[in-house]
Design a protein around this nucleic acid. Sequence first.
DNA 1: TATGAATGAGTCTTCATTCAT
DNA 2: TATGAATGAAGACTCATTCAT
Lengths: 198, 198, 198, 198
Amino acid sequence: MPKIVDHDERRERIVEIVAEMLATVGAEKTTIREIARQSGYSRGFIEHYFHNKEELITKTIRWINERSLARADVALKGKSGLTALKAFSKLSLPITPETRNEWKVRMQFWGMAAVSDEHRREQSKRIHVSEKIILEFLQQAQDNNELKTDIDLLPLAHSLLHRLNGLGCNAILRPTYFTRQRQLQALDHIMAEFIKAR
Amino acid sequence: MPKIVDHDERRERIVEIVAEMLATVGAEKTTIREIARQSGYSRGFIEHYFHNKEELITKTIRWINERSLARADVALKGKSGLTALKAFSKLSLPITPETRNEWKVRMQFWGMAAVSDEHRREQSKRIHVSEKIILEFLQQAQDNNELKTDIDLLPLAHSLLHRLNGLGCNAILRPTYFTRQRQLQALDHIMAEFIKAR
Amino acid sequence: MPKIVDHDERRERIVEIVAEMLATVGAEKTTIREIARQSGYSRGFIEHYFHNKEELITKTIRWINERSLARADVALKGKSGLTALKAFSKLSLPITPETRNEWKVRMQFWGMAAVSDEHRREQSKRIHVSEKIILEFLQQAQDNNELKTDIDLLPLAHSLLHRLNGLGCNAILRPTYFTRQRQLQALDHIMAEFIKAR
Amino acid sequence: MPKIVDHDERRERIVEIVAEMLATVGAEKTTIREIARQSGYSRGFIEHYFHNKEELITKTIRWINERSLARADVALKGKSGLTALKAFSKLSLPITPETRNEWKVRMQFWGMAAVSDEHRREQSKRIHVSEKIILEFLQQAQDNNELKTDIDLLPLAHSLLHRLNGLGCNAILRPTYFTRQRQLQALDHIMAEFIKAR
DNA sequence: TATGAATGAGTCTTCATTCAT
DNA sequence: TATGAATGAAGACTCATTCAT
């Protein structure tokens, strides 16, 4: 009788290690050899579960994005409107070791996405999802009278989207300047403007 | 006596090609071999002007940043305050083929910067310069009574910095959505908020 | 399960080829490429068993030295005193194709040892081992009354050590002059002096 | 009017630097580039005076050998017999920085000589010259009644030749053991045997 | 005479991938 | 299912050499 193995579970374990490596040593040094060494699996094993390196990389970014969305799902349960929006925004900033690593991984992919349609689509999808989430919370805020009714939500959503994205990047690139605290201040500043928009 | 060549001029010519390649095929495929092939130069030629690949890469990002600053210098001559600020912001967005490529190159480096202190420093420096420029224009705006006198400029500068950075990224990652036009609209939206802040 | 191979056995097979090449084409032309070509193995194959060229080279000299010691061990079984000493001396001279090659390999390494501490240590160790062996046999000779009891053995040992070493070198460098026969005559001459020392 | 340059003088200056490099960094790292850098000459300049690297290397060993012979010539003026022999022997041992370097250079060449007829001839010639010198002094010693008349000088000469050569090698390979002092003791030991041979 | 620009072969090494077991 | 043996292409880099000036 063959051993019963949970393929998806194994795949995820590998992907986790790949993500960790992307965040710490970068894409260039994330080789299958090194992944095998760090994971304790054999090179051949990894290729059993991933057709090739490209697929492994793609799965990794997808996993990162899904994980961060799942985390948001949990954290936002029961919240709505501006409260939810602020919580979501905070979750997406690189202020915890985990989210910092997620940002670093993401930034590895942006380089690829800038020149590869397939990777770009993946990133595009993620931005689109964020946009929808933000828009939804903004709509709730408007419904709750947290925002003026006549305000156009899309530009507002984009504004937040860009600020979060830019802040995240800058925080990775200037970590000693854009510390956790300064990021939270920036977030407060953003939210304050929304409130002004009431 | 041998032919006398202008080393810096040669270096720049090579760097230009490297930048082009980084923007079109990405960092991974920007090998010295490929640079040589695309440029028509020999591999040895390139080694003649750069000690190693690392130096070539570093010089390229530096060149990109210097070029974009030089462009800003020229364009902003005679401008000040919010007018200058808007012009500067517009210049930094990926709305021309040239600036689009610059953003793509930059995004290649972010992956490296996320895991390499040396590259991070370079990127950090660039952000810092942008911040200073923005602050200077904001100060002028305040002096010209374009902004309220009691307003704190630093958060404002950061806000703009993040928005421009995030918008630039998003425009590269979702080019069909964040078109030139939508980028300009977003910029208008940003500037409108500054004017509100009067 | 993959084919199971005896790594040490493979390594030895490669090392043997490297030794052969060092003795015939010299260190400079003993490139991994050439080793691969001559052995029929692929470059990757060699890399599979040795981390890098340095290791390959180091292992080769070690193997050469171990092999020659092992040969002495076998040949000297049951011998002692001056008889053993002469047998040992004879074994170490480049009078067979095998020992000739060993000397040639050794001389490749001397160049390296002259400028590299690590290689020098390896060579130093080998000389030290020879010295100890020679001393041991001299001691036996003295115990057997083959030598006078009041004679100081260390200078005698060194004398032999130097003569064997010098003769070996000279025989490689002037092979048509220091032929097998002349080497054996020189050895006889040396042994005669020991006997005189009775 | 063209500049008058002393070609031989320039060649010698280069050769001197090459010898120094061979003794300190080894043959492998003695590249034309590095020679040029260390000498301050241009790469092209060096090739003006030496047709190719091979020639440069060959000239260097020849120069080393000539220099050491010249040194002997000077030092032995007026000496003869065993006195001359001892002086000559002492001069050839690696006990001064200069002679140590000469030995190191020589040992670089032995690796080449072991596999190249041309280099071997050069080394062979040097040994032959030494042999003749030694024989000559032995003959004088015999004529002066420093040695018995019925003794066969050739084996004696060879014995000395081998011992000096072996001692020189061993002194380079085990410098902390075969110190200057131990070398001189060994030389005394050798000479004592000659005297016994009276 | 002398320079250094330029070349391309060749160096070691790393890599993703294939495949027999 | 899983391993790791084996390959060969491609990586960055070094080098001796040629040649126009």
